[in-house]
Simulated scan of single mutants.
Amino acid sequence: MSMIGYCNDGGHMALVYEYMPQGSLKEHIAGEDGNMPCLPWERRLRVALETAQGLLYLHKGCSPPIIHRDVKTTNILLNARLEAKIADFGLSKAFNCEDDTHVSTNTFAGTLGYAAPEYQRTMQPSTKSDVYSFGVVLLELVTGKPAIVRNPESIPLINWARQRLAWGDIEGVVDTRMQGDHDINAVWKTTEIALKCTEQSPLQRPSMTDVVMQLQECLDLEEGFERGDNGFYTDSSNGGMNPNMGYNITTNQSTDVSQNNAALR
């Protein structure tokens, strides 16, 4: 988001940013405002792509590069055209040099359900911890559920989704409010990207460069579906297998939702 100005008048201090009349992505996904219509899948994909492009700019386009540290749906705001922009850089950190792979901090800051496990352990955020948080946002866009699912016990959305996808049933996790108005292949591919982003090992997660490219492919699939094109998703990384046929999901990933509760906000 663009900063327009600031106020520093005695005890009155404020930062002024551009106005985003459509509020946060969380409000649209959670339906917190009864007057807000459900975001269609094509718009959700565009929001995901625009957010990924914003993170890519922070990681690659800024000098020095910037780690956001608190990527979540409440920090993704929508303008009048429902275009997404990243907000709230109060926790952001910059690299000291191009060779750095992470930033050392003395305190942990983040949000329950979004924070990467290695960041919780080491308090050293990296671009890959931003990728992890973005993966959770992607799952929220697919499922319409919050980062922590109460079902009835509280479990991370990542675990909730993996347990159901282990059966190969993508429709079992898709937000029912979209009422089938989506290309199932684009949904599969988006879900696969989210799962890769939320791998336990940072080395197994893609870069935001890769994520942007993959999401653009998802959007192309969805636009082809809306035009009536016939086609299906093949993943070049697994030999062209259609994930609808025997999708292999590991379910041993877990995030201790009680860990660092006091440090999370």
Rank of each mutant, 00 (worst) to 15 (best):
N151P: 09
L56C: 06
K145M: 13
S104M: 12
V136H: 03
T111G: 08
Y132F: 15
T122E: 10
C97F: 07
C62W: 06
K60A: 07
A115C: 14
S129D: 06
L45Y: 03
Q120H: 07
A80T: 14
A115W: 02
P146W: 06
I170N: 05
L77T: 11
A161K: 08
V103Q: 01
T107Y: 05
F95L: 15
G144I: 11
E98M: 10
A116Q: 00
I158T: 11
C62T: 10
Y119E: 06
W160A: 00
T127F: 10
K128D: 08
L139V: 03
A52V: 04
G90I: 14
L56R: 12
E140G: 12
H68Q: 07
N79M: 08
N75R: 06
D169N: 15
R177S: 14
W160K: 01
Y57R: 06
V137L: 03
D183V: 07
G54V: 04
L49V: 12
P65F: 03
H102T: 14
Y132A: 02
F134W: 05
G180K: 13
V174M: 12
V149H: 05
R69V: 15
P117I: 09
I86P: 07
T127P: 05
I66C: 06
N106A: 13
P146N: 04
A166W: 04
H102P: 12
T74S: 11
L49S: 07
D70H: 09
S133G: 12
A48Q: 01
N96G: 15
M178L: 15
N185K: 09
T176G: 06
G144A: 10
G110Y: 00
D130H: 09
L78F: 11
L139T: 00
S129W: 05
A48T: 02
A115E: 04
H59F: 02
I86H: 05
I67E: 08
T101Q: 11
H59C: 07
F95C: 10
D130L: 09
C97Q: 13
F95M: 13
D183H: 13
G180C: 12
P117R: 08
K85S: 10
D70P: 13
T176K: 15
R150Q: 13
I76R: 04
K145W: 04
E83D: 12
V131M: 07
P125L: 02
L91C: 11
